[in-house]
Design a protein around this nucleic acid. Sequence first.
DNA 1: CTGTGCAATACCACTTTGCCCCCC
DNA 2: AGGGGGGCTTTGTGGTATTGCACA
Length: 894
Amino acid sequence: MPPFVPRKRSHSEDPPPPKRQALDVSAKPFSIDESDSDSSESSLSDTPADNTHGSRIPVSDDEDEEEEEEEDDDIDWEDAIDPKTSATTPSLAGPELQDLELTLDKNEAHVSDLLDGKKGPTKIERHIRIQSHCIHVQCLLYHNAIRNAWINDAKVHETLRHKLPDGIHKEVKKWRIATGLEIPERKPDPPKSKKKKGKQAKKKEEWGPEAERLEPGQPDMSRGDPIITLLKVLVAYWKNQFQITAPGLRKHGYRPVASLEEIITDFRNEEHDPERHGERIANIDEFRAVAENMQGSRDVGAQLFTALIRALGIEARLVSNLQPLGFGWTKAEVYTPPKTDAVPTNTKPENGSGESESTPDVEQDPPKAKKGGAQYDKDLPFPIYWTEVVSPATNEIISVDSLVLPKPLGLSADQQEAFEPRGAKADRVKQVICYVIAHSADGTAKDVTTRYLRRRTWPGKTKGFRFPVQKLPTPGLQGQYFEYDWFRNVMRGYIRPPDQRTKVDEQEDETDLKRKQPEKKKTTQAGDTLQSLRTSTEFVLERFLRREEALKPGAEPVRTFTAGKGARAKEEQVYKRADVVKCMSAESWHKEGRQIQAGAAPLKKVPIRAVTLMRKREVDEMQRETGQKPMQGLYARDQTEYIIPPPIVDGKIPKNNYGNIDCFVPSMIPRGAAHVPFSGTVRLCKKLGIDYAEAVTGFEFGSKMAVPVIQGVVVAAENEDLLKDAWRIDAAEKRKREELKAEKRILQTWRKFLFGLRIAERVREEYGGGDPFADREREAQNPFALRKKNNEQHEPDEKHDDDHFEEDSHDPVDHGGGFLLPGEEDDGDDHLIVEEHKQEDHIGEDDSDDGELSPPISISSEPDEDQETGAKDDPESDYAPPTRSGVRRRRRGG
DNA sequence: CTGTGCAATACCACTTTGCCCCCC
DNA sequence: AGGGGGGCTTTGTGGTATTGCACA
């Protein structure tokens, strides 16, 4: 026995070949990467170790994850292919039993953090994120729609109004008078009386929109919109009264699956805990209770504030800046474990007040959060929910945030920008802007994102977080695209119907919600930046020219641009884009049917790109000789001219070095010659004694080779008709042969099948087994009985055939099993076929080999059973995979 | 906060004339 | 028995666009 021991572990103390050692080191972590991408608890603290594969295994002790992980599958496949060992151990030639060792290491828990890993997300991972994003957005929208409905609840309104102190009621009254909704009375009703039950209906009458029409008055705008004063009062009141006692919604990022599962299990099995599971308001009753208690999350605070505004008869929308899981791989999508795990003190660096125990992350230690009066979501610098109040005086939108922002009112574009999450603090807590949706009292919702974007410019900060408008290919129309706006589609179910749109809608759509395009930086001399020049359509630097682009000869620079600063400053010439021309190599021009004009000098020289082995060898050879990279010249179109081949003389077709003729474009066919792009024409030409050349219409690349695509032949024009006629006759014959062959095959198959049936029948008769033609049994044994149910499109004949099985089965051959026997064949189809070919002749090249590929007409309408019972064996049948026939067509098509 | 430069990566375009086996 | 049709295989690389990040 040779020294080789076919056991992986046991021979590790043997001097292993160096190569395998290297493999072992790298293979272990690699398998970890593969296997635990989803299953491990994430602790970002150990991600740095992920960067170096080798060092990962020892450092994994900081994990608390209990999950068992399969790692290290140690089958040393390299031993099996090691030429040394296999040469000396003939026994290895056959399969040999080997020990397979599997090491399960529960400490091997790592984040497969794609940001840190070498390779990016796979297609599937991308898909998962996109789906997660889309679903999450829709869930959030629906959640908000429900809350919005609750906000309309009369009882909630009642509760909230009831709690308002007299002072505020006075303010409300003042505002109503100032706005002209109410005519001042000598002695206004004490607000108290309005709080009684049954007030609701009355109030609506008095304060509702109808009131505006019933009691028209001019708003007193002398001191600005009176509603602003009222809102300030209400916000102050709300800030004072509403207590934040629970965490609100926020974006967490994608957690590792294991941690997610843990949370879900906890959520399902444990008693509900807002700290761990988030705030839960299960139904309208609970919502009413929250209104009564005036406490909850910031989000609910904003929702109730919206309810309060509505309760006062003011049009108010519930606005939500959705914080969905994203579809990208930025930091905002990476789950950040609560800081308390990593940092011993629970003081957050960014939190100046020191009251930091408020992170509502699910893993957060509840006791910590509870002590000290619970300041939830203090780390979120921007509101998730707020209110849009419509001023009855101006129909303008006033954004109101009652709990979070230092300046609660957004009256102008500048002030409304302040609602947009931005800056380092927002980044850290993953606050984003992508969809800002306003829900109106009538249950409709509207995308108001634009209002809160900086300078109301798109895409702004929504870039990378809002699902972009896609350009999808139009089905059926090649090269045409249509725009698909996923989110607009989602919103379709929420938007206000066109016939119910309000004045406010029209007004804001014309102003606030009008999307602005980012201003194009003027490419003036003063404003030149590298970026602007790179994207400029007017100017260009020489270094931005593409490989196949060159400056026109004699192009003058427009100005100079200095890139870099100080010592690294470098002056570059700025040229006009208009002076840039597209260039191609002589070979590429040849493919377009053009050649370089005599004496033209290349505008540019670039290294040769060799793809095929032959060319590569050539290039390598040249490089070895000259010691430098061989270059090829590129020429502009106006340095080239059409290739006009010399006309045909005496019916002789000129041929190139390869014995064929290049026909990349029609103009390359010599005068007096014709291209007959049908397959099999070579044989016919030989037979007819015509001079010809195979027509090369392009190339195919594969296996490091360029293969010419040959479509038919080029012959002298006077021979064209002769050849075409010959081809038609030939094709018709060929088709007929095929037809006969296929028919023969079909009949044989049927014959075989019917014999089989007869045998089965006889066996049944002789050995019993019940009524052979009992329906159920028949279905079980006769595949066609089942088949027919699924396929309604059979020709009427077949049913007939099947029905006759029983009767004819005594002598199926004589009757052809219901099929036409060769002698009985109706020949009418032949004319049809010939006609078809004539048509193809006119249409062109591609379809003309149908004669080879598709079966004769009678076959294509044969019952499917044929396929089942044996036609698959025939590679010539039309059941061959489409790709194959496609390749074949391109190669020798025509 | 913005522009620049770099790195990583996804995607696209360019590439330009065999060989061998099996069937007819 | 030989000629020819068809299967093989889907390349591989360099450029470019895009994105993220660090830094000035």
